[in-house]
Design a protein around this nucleic acid. Structure first.
Lengths: 235, 235
DNA sequence: CCGTATTTGTCCGTATGTATG
DNA sequence: ACATACATACGGACAAATACG
């Protein structure tokens, strides 16, 4: 008997349908990590953590193993588990992977893009232009997220979506202060226009390259802020 | 308590006391899966499996959660865990991701390639030409693996290596018979030359595209064999 | 449709080794 | 070197869901 069971990805909130408790814990802890409530480097003590969720250590350990395999938690032999802390050097590697995956989204999207999608993308661009002019960092940030999410999910490759989100999540484990500055908004949106223009041109390579370079330039902006903060980076 | 020490079951129990037992189990089971000993779709019963390795269910479940997060095992709620079976459709998605990651390797490699590396790569090419002419499928297969591994590891991005291997592993979970045919060897090696030429040219985009298209063409070859085997593929 | 057996999911108690003070 | 704390792992137990007859 073949099976194509889809995952438990059902709602991620509350005391919902108790699927495997370990899966619920995994999502809860992931949320705690990504929300910053459990910052990078924080030690994850089993007993208090299990008590916090009202479970025993068994399911908790299973959940942490899952997070470990997904790169959000690291373990030291007999030394416990910690929220992964990503160095700026590792962040650069992640940016490169993200650029490649995002570039693939552009390449794939070129062959499936419709006029309706191009209209919607234009809407995103205009909205972001407006917010950038108004210096509304918060608003720009969210529309920017929606814009990227729309692009990635429209590429028609579910594995791509998964990998992209995983890379973005890992990037959040590198603590740097103030990644966005108002000056960068208009620059960023110009890159967005190049991406959409690439899609509209129907040239896969041009679209792929526009998508790739958008992330690559984000990497450079990230690196410049890191250089500004610390004089020397330890590998 | 009749059971004391009976098992050195039909397996390879190294006195490998390295690290958490769950990690050891994870690697062992991964090896069993990738070697085909546990084929796609096989059910993983906890009790017999734990007995096979002489451990309790705890560490075994942790190991399986890790494999689940890495995509080699799927779990149905209260229905047990199975070795993941990848459909041809999913395999296509994986090929696209692999192309993007491999293309990134080419792009990164262009800026770090040395004359010594180019010489070594030429050696690979000549060796594969020789084996292709001799119709030595087995030999070509292994040198081909070394060639790709050398390229990926030389790109200087450890995350890239990890992701690439993960994608290749997942591809092994799609059961198809006879992926390689003698006729494809010379074709494949012509693509390899284009890749190396791209690196030697110093043009990142050319190298990236050569790397990308090499995997893309492998995807097409894979798809044609799948089409040949089954008439129609259900979505 | 119902009863039973198997298996998963979970919890608890405990033993052992290792790291830390 | 000693003692404490903790991670790791074992074994047993039970509830709940599932599969099977």
């Amino acid at each position: 008997m073949v099976f194509s069971m889809d995952q438990v990805s059902a709602g991620d909130n509350e005391a919902d349908r108790s699927g495997p408790l370990s899966a619920v814990l995994e999502q809860q802890i992931e949320h705690l990590i990504l929300s910053g409530e459990l910052g990078p480097g924080v030690r994850l003590n089993e007993i208090p953590l299990a008590g916090r969720f009202g479970t025993s250590r068994g399911p908790l350990r299973e959940a942490l193993r899952g997070l470990q395999a997904r790169g959000l938690v690291v373990v030291g032999a007999n030394r416990g588990m910690y929220v992964r802390a990503i160095s700026p050097r590792e962040a650069l590697e992640i940016y490169d992977l993200r650029a490649a995956v995002f570039g693939l989204a552009g390449r794939l999207l070129t062959d499936r893009v419709t006029d309706a999608m191009l209209d919607r993308l234009s809407g995103f661009l205009n909205e972001m232009d407006r917010l950038a002019a108004a210096r509304d960092l918060e608003g720009y940030y969210h529309v920017n997220l929606d814009f990227h999410e729309f692009l990635v999910t429209s590429a028609g490759n579910s594995l791509l979506v998964e990998q992209y989100k995983s890379l973005v999540n890992k990037l959040h484990l590198c603590r740097t202060r103030g990644l966005v500055q108002a000056g960068g908004l208009s620059v960023s949106n110009r890159e967005h226009r190049e991406m959409v223009d690439g899609l509209a041109s129907g040239d896969r390579y041009r679209a792929q390259e526009a998508f790739f370079r958008h992330v690559e330039r984000a990497k450079l902006r990230f690196w410049s802020t890191v250089e500004g903060q610390q004089g020397i980076i330890q590998s």
